[in-house]
Structures are given as structure tokens and as C-alpha cells.
């Protein structure tokens, strides 16, 4: 009943990259940064063009037939035995922990289990499979880390983001008050219960601002869109960035055009 011990694979020659729909449509530069970080580690990145969405929005909304159909359309995109890296705790959590139950007793069960077992969140992969060593080339900076609830609780990755940022010598990492509290995104929750979600994101943004950090970085585009969108709308003094973009730029990577 306790979480099983996660066994990391040896560093592979290749990985499949599952970008997630939010990265694809709204934050492609974060996806590109992740791909370039992997390539710099000597890994060939395979990007299946047939990928769309992991199915999570319909799944958490209760439309499981639709979620299953969309998830099923992703299952055959990863035929070889390479790890599947996902630049999101939320989508990674969906694929790793919910696919097996979603496809139980269906013809796709075995395929879903084969996919789920190979899914790793990208920062987890960089830290614990690649054993990445980041060389910080940037100016001194202060950032706050926001780990998504799915990365923190579903995948147990609370330590990963801080460990990566900790390798950046010129970067001071600060913790907001109540760091483990949700930012209020929750997918369709933000639209179904906008006032509750709004109260959560307002408090989260205030806590991030109170750290005095220039900006915050996060593992998940849902949180990023939520917190940065609120900061912009409410004119609060903090900017947000996906952790992959931040790591890539701090270590000499070019900003994407």
C-alpha cells in the first residue's frame, strides 16, 4: 500500500519526449529547452509527431470514455523500449499512475502498463538518470521554487527542483511560506470553481512575492499559467518561468527565437 520504491534506469542513448498539450500550444520554448538539455547530456530525443494530450483534462472532469480514447491514441507512439520523458509532473503523473487503472480490463491494458512503467518526469530524469551537472553562467539571481502538487505528491519529486537549482552557484533559492500548498490550478477546477481557485492563486502569488524573489520557477505549465497569469492580472511583482527554460538559459543555452 505504501509507494513502491522507484528504480531508475541506466542512462539511455535515446528517450521519447512527450511534450504535453500545454507546452505544445502555450510554452513550446520550455519544451525546446528540455529537449536541448537532454541533447546536451548526449541523449537523442525522439519526438513522436502523432502525440497530442495525455487525456488528463477529461479524466479529472469525469469523462473517462473520452480520456481513455485520447490516452489510447498515445499508447502506440513509443514502440521501442526507451524511457518516455514528460516535462510536467501533472501529465507525467497521469501517465505513470493513472493509465494502468484507466485501461484495466481493456484490450489496451498491457500497452498502457508498458507506457506507464517507462514514464519519468523530465527534471527527475535529468537529476536521477542523467546525473546532470549544471554550470551556472548567469548573473546573481534569486528565485522561488514552486513544485506542483502532482510532482510533489503523486510522483514524490519535492526534492528534485531544489536540487537542480541548488547546482546553480549564482542563484539563491528561497522558499515561500506554505510551499506545499496548492496554487489552485487543478485543471477544470479553475473554471468550475473560479472564486475558490482565485483565492488560492492569490494567496500563493502573495507568498511568492513575499519571498522577495525576482521570479519563481515551476515544474508544471498549469501552475505557471495560473500563478504568472494572476500576477500579471493583479499586477503583483513576480514573474514565472518553467524550470527547464530557466536551467537551459542559466547554463549558456540560447533563448529560443
Amino acid at each position: 500500500m505504501a509507494d513502491p520504491v522507484k528504480v531508475y534506469p541506466a542512462k539511455p542513448d535515446k528517450v521519447y519526449f512527450f511534450a504535453t498539450c500545454l507546452i505544445d500550444l502555450f510554452y513550446p520554448e520550455a519544451g525546446l529547452a528540455g529537449i536541448q538539455l537532454l541533447e546536451r547530456e548526449g541523449i537523442e530525443v525522439l519526438f513522436p509527431q502523432g502525440q497530442t494530450c495525455c487525456g488528463q483534462p477529461a479524466y479529472t472532469s469525469g469523462y473517462h470514455d473520452e480520456a481513455r480514447a485520447v490516452a489510447a491514441a498515445q499508447l502506440n507512439l513509443f514502440p521501442a523500449d526507451w524511457p518516455i520523458v514528460v516535462p510536467s509532473g501533472s501529465c507525467g503523473g497521469m501517465m505513470r499512475t493513472h493509465y494502468p487503472a484507466l485501461f484495466r480490463d481493456t484490450p489496451h491494458q498491457a500497452a498502457a502498463e508498458r507506457v506507464a512503467a517507462r514514464v519519468l518526469e523530465l527534471t527527475d530524469f535529468l537529476l536521477n538518470v542523467c546525473h546532470i551537472q549544471l554550470q551556472d553562467l548567469g548573473e546573481p539571481d534569486t528565485v522561488a521554487m514552486h513544485t506542483s502538487c502532482s510532482a510533489r505528491r503523486e510522483l514524490g519529486l519535492a526534492g528534485v527542483g531544489p536540487a537542480l537549482l541548488g547546482q546553480l552557484k549564482q542563484v539563491t533559492v528561497v522558499d515561500p511560506a506554505r510551499a506545499e500548498e496548492c496554487c489552485g490550478f487543478g485543471g477544470t477546477f479553475a473554471v468550475r470553481h473560479p472564486q475558490i481557485s482565485g483565492a488560492l492563486v492569490s494567496d500563493k502569488t502573495d507568498a511568492l512575492v513575499a519571498t522577495g524573489a525576482r521570479g519563481f520557477v515551476t515544474t508544471d505549465c498549469g501552475c505557471l499559467m495560473n500563478i504568472a497569469g494572476h500576477a500579471e492580472k493583479a499586477d503583483k511583482a513576480i514573474v514565472g518561468e518553467h524550470i527547464l527554460s530557466y536551467l537551459w538559459q542559466r547554463t549558456g543555452g540560447e533563448s529560443p527565437p
Binding site: 511534450a19 507546452i23 505544445d24 500550444l25 502555450f26 510554452y27 513550446p28 520554448e29 519544451g31 525546446l32 529537449i35 519526438f47 509527431q49 502525440q51 479553475a190 473554471v191 468550475r192 470553481h193 473560479p194 472564486q195 481557485s197 482565485g198 492563486v201 492569490s202 499559467m225 495560473n226 497569469g229 494572476h230 500579471e232 492580472k233 493583479a234 529560443p256
Partner: peptide, 27 residues
């Protein structure tokens, strides 16, 4: 405006080119 989303946040901005499109150019 997007329903309740924009009560508390600015609207998310679609990128000019998706990651799919960028990867097609790279590969």
C-alpha cells in the same frame, strides 16, 4: 475573457508556433 479563468488571471497566450511545428523544422 475565458469564463471564470480571467476573473483572476490574464488569458493564456497561444505561442506563434507549436512545439510540434518547431520539431518538424528541426527534424
Amino acid at each position: 475573457r475565458f469564463g471564470g479563468w480571467t476573473d483572476h488571471r490574464s488569458a493564456p497566450k497561444l505561442a506563434a508556433r507549436s512545439l510540434h511545428a518547431r520539431m518538424r523544422e528541426r527534424q
